[in-house]
Design a protein around this nucleic acid. Structure first.
Lengths: 221, 221, 221, 221
DNA sequence: AATGAATGAGTATTCATTCAT
DNA sequence: AATGAATGAATACTCATTCAT
């Protein structure tokens, strides 16, 4: 009874930065950084313009905070998870892509990719950060998975370094689409993420798997 | 003697709109629509700000013109070319991807993709245009190629509608990368387009091709 | 044990307004009224912004309080002191200037002059107050001293009303300099107040004193 | 008749910077730098806000330009003029002070002094410039005049370095007054510049002149 | 057609002031 | 009394657009 329950003001203060970042992410993704007014961000977060500047010193700072917050320490957890996986590498890859879809692709967080690709050249410093925090660890994670397949005799991959893009490309494409053209187009044309992931997984896996007793028919049959 | 000058001037005058569009495309791709100043566009095209407005009524109009100009009638020619192709569908696909790389991917024109994905939500009207002029015809072109493979017993494609993305995704990814992160990152990390196309082609084709006498090992071998 | 704290607090509380005025005076003098943020004033006084507004209803009010506090009842004491002086009027003037230097010129209080001259036109009401509380009484005090010299046959002053400025001008100049250019300039260029007062006193007195048996050589020799 | 007379637009363009500086000087003097809005300056110069920024990149830049413009090369001319003077040094000093009053003290230009003293600490870079362009040359000019008087046996000046302030102080005081308190006070209290200069000149000269056959009565008669 | 001077609506940012705690 | 989070009016500065030349 005498316990001091955190009251309105206090509770809100704690929540402010997060609410602002969420609002900023969605608006930056929607309209781009330059076309988003800080006042809109503040309004969507339910505060006044002045309050935003209490937490972030400038619009640029806000952008940086959005990127850091959304990306920070994404991969530690996943690395572990995949390290412990015990099934076939094909299943690992399927599982990975589906997990990614559920945890990232289908959520707000996926917008950050569109944001980075759209604004990279205006924020080279952030582009470098993204390269180091997302692209490199992501690429390495995928590379380790593919390597596992090769090591276990499951996969046959001539150019391992570039094969990772077979996994990355659909993820990028799906995210970019969702947050741009896909959002402007009648529902009939919209891409179904789950079906997309399923279809790509199967083609991709068939493309990677070792085929007992035969070489690729390729080239000039 | 008095002939040379008028010719030069005339040619210049004729060239203006094109020079402006070219300048605009590269700047829009570099910095985004909102962060590009019309004065920069004019300067890069070698004319004054006022002159730009002689040709395009507004910055938005300029953007639309850039998109229309860059996209107009892209596919008619290709459709025919592919219709006449006589080799295997695998080769057709390889040829298509390489052609695309040479004629689009490796050129300025590839920037339009980044532009469209970045700005779609601010120009829904253009997004629709892009959908109709590029995405639909492009998708259909690819779909026809895949269908050809299926019809001829070369390919085995469970979900044809979504299989087209296996071809599209790498093209999108490559273009987006080139004009964003890829442009901000040390050369060592840069992606080699030709190698990228080659690697993806082979994985993709292996993933699509009919495999005599066996089903996909899938799931839980 | 429980006595010490309340005393401290009490003393603090009593001291607040004074600490705030002191902080405000020095900051206003340093940076001007408009460029000084109330938050800085509060910080320098060791309280929060909100607390300042507990004591002064607005920034303007704070400014007025600074001026009133610093100027209030400056002259009553001096008038008496000078009234009782018994030596020569030259000595009285010397004594007056040196006293002023010690009690005002060399102290924080001198800043108020810079402040008033800088801000007068934005605070005409305060300018009037300053005119009445400082300029008029100051002028009259000096005028009485000069009159004393004339009455006692020590001084020869053709235009008594404007002669007072001979005394005032160096004081103003010295104060203005101290709190502006003088504060921005290498020590080598700085003006030594005491030497300044001494030098001006002597020239001034020589300029005022009766010269037995001869007229000014001046003008049209 | 066929002569191309500079037309409205062109003529105005040439005049712009000067008109802006004039407007800025008077407003800065009136209200201080911080309290003057650039829009007011533009309005007083008869142009829009945007136009001001066409000529001066920032409000700070405008301020610097005002100072430079008003002060630049003030002293070259005067130095020469005084070098050629042939009368008594007393007359030279009288002439100098009256010239100064007519050419500077009574004009808009005098406001710059108030401006510099008020804003020096916010623009240390300009304070240094003022020190070098105005205070130093001004001091030296006056010192040379006083030295001339000493050299010719006209003046008796114990502390020459600080004696210059006897000349400077009234000029500063007069200017400061004019542009601050003096502008806020009923006409009855206003200082008459010419009378001020006259009164100070005579007291000052009497204070500087050699007195044949007697020392200063001073100190302790 | 071409220029570039001029405009003013639009936007990021600051800061005096309020008020819930 | 004291705090400091929140506000929003105020202001410097930008840039698409106009238009006289």
């Amino acid at each position: 009874m005498s316990e001091v329950i955190p009251i309105k003001r206090e509770r809100r203060k704690q929540a402010r930065p997060g609410e602002l970042l969420e609002a900023a992410l969605s608006l930056f993704v929607e309209k781009g950084f330059a076309s988003t007014r800080v006042e809109e961000v503040a309004a969507r977060a339910g505060v006044s313009k002045g309050t935003l500047f209490l937490y972030y010193a400038s619009k640029d700072d806000l952008f940086k905070a959005v990127v850091h917050e959304t990306l920070a320490g994404r991969f530690a957890e996943w690395n572990e998870e995949f390290e412990r996986f015990e099934g076939s590498t094909a299943d690992l890859l399927r599982y990975g892509l589906n997990s990614w879809w559920e945890r990232v692709g289908a959520t707000q967080a996926s917008g950050i990719t569109k944001l980075m690709f759209s604004e990279a050249r205006n924020f080279p410093e952030l582009a470098a950060y993204y390269q180091n925090q997302v692209i490199l660890p992501g690429t390495q994670l995928i590379r380790r998975i593919l390597q596992r397949g090769v090591d276990r005799g499951e996969f046959d991959i001539p150019d391992l370094d570039y094969a990772v893009f077979s996994v990355i490309a659909p993820m990028i494409h799906l995210q970019m689409n969702q947050h741009s053209i896909g959002a402007c187009v009648p529902a009939a044309f919209a891409i179904d993420g789950q079906r997309y992931i399923a279809a790509q997984s199967e083609i991709l896996l068939k493309g990677l798997l070792q085929r007992p007793g035969q070489a690729l028919a390729g080239g000039h049959a």
